[in-house]
Simulated scan of single mutants.
Amino acid sequence: MTDTPPPEPQEITEAIQSVLYEFTQERDDITANDPITVNSGYCREFAEEVLDYLGYPSEITQYDAWYVHSWIEFDGQHYDAEHPRGVKHPREFPIWERVTADEYEMAVSDCDILNQKTP
């Protein structure tokens, strides 16, 4: 954790968009060409790159749900490559519609926030 001041939500959106551009347009070591592909194998690295871009503010939490999905949360909003403006609850992420029932169950059992009621 650092002394980096908390970001504004727009700064998170801009960071996600910038890192997404880097992942889909500039990196030769990643074969992702859109947010769905980023969320289908590169989401943990993506979340970490967004945190790095923002200077690792202590107010942002990174969540990992088993080996299925990673995302960040700030001030009640959850962000990933497909939702640069955030959603109220991580169950709103469309990745859950693309994974198997077993993968979803493993993610839910691994990440308590997925068990919480939607605000």
Rank of each mutant, 00 (worst) to 15 (best):
P5N: 09
G55W: 10
P35N: 07
R91N: 10
P90G: 04
A81F: 06
P9M: 01
K88S: 13
V19F: 04
Y56D: 07
P9Q: 06
Q116Y: 15
R98I: 03
F23I: 01
Q10F: 00
T24P: 04
E14K: 14
N115M: 12
T13G: 01
R85C: 06
D29L: 09
E26Y: 02
D64I: 04
M1S: 15
S18E: 13
K117Q: 13
D34S: 13
P9T: 08
L54H: 03
V19E: 09
Q77Y: 12
G76N: 05
C111N: 14
D75T: 01
E73Y: 06
E92I: 06
T61W: 08
T13D: 05
R98Y: 13
E45S: 15
H78W: 04
D80V: 01
V68L: 05
A32W: 04
P7S: 01
E97W: 13
W66G: 02
K88Q: 14
Y67W: 07
E103P: 09
E97C: 11
M1A: 15
P6Y: 03
L51I: 05
P9R: 08
K117R: 14
H69P: 02
A47D: 01
Q25K: 11
R44F: 15
V50Q: 00
E97V: 01
Y53P: 02
I36W: 03
D75R: 07
D102I: 13
P57K: 02
G55H: 07
F46A: 04
C43W: 01
E14W: 08
S40A: 15
S58T: 11
D110Y: 09
T31M: 14
A107E: 03
Y63C: 06
Q77F: 10
Q62S: 00
T31K: 15
H83R: 02
Y21V: 10
P94G: 11
H83A: 10
P7T: 02
D52R: 15
A32G: 07
E45R: 15
F46H: 05
D102R: 12
H78T: 00
D80M: 03
E22Q: 15
D52Q: 13
E48L: 14
W66S: 01
E26I: 06
E92Y: 06
D52F: 12
H78M: 02
D64A: 08
A107T: 02
Q10I: 14
R91V: 12
D112P: 11
P9D: 03
S18V: 04
R85Y: 07
I95L: 12
D64L: 04
V38D: 12
S58L: 08
G41R: 09
T31V: 12
G41S: 11
Y53G: 07
E48D: 13
I60F: 01
I60R: 06
S58F: 10
T24R: 00
R98C: 10
L114M: 07
Q10H: 05
D29F: 09
S40C: 15
R85M: 06
E73V: 02
I36D: 13
P6H: 09
Q62V: 09
P9A: 00
L54T: 05
Q17F: 10
P7E: 07
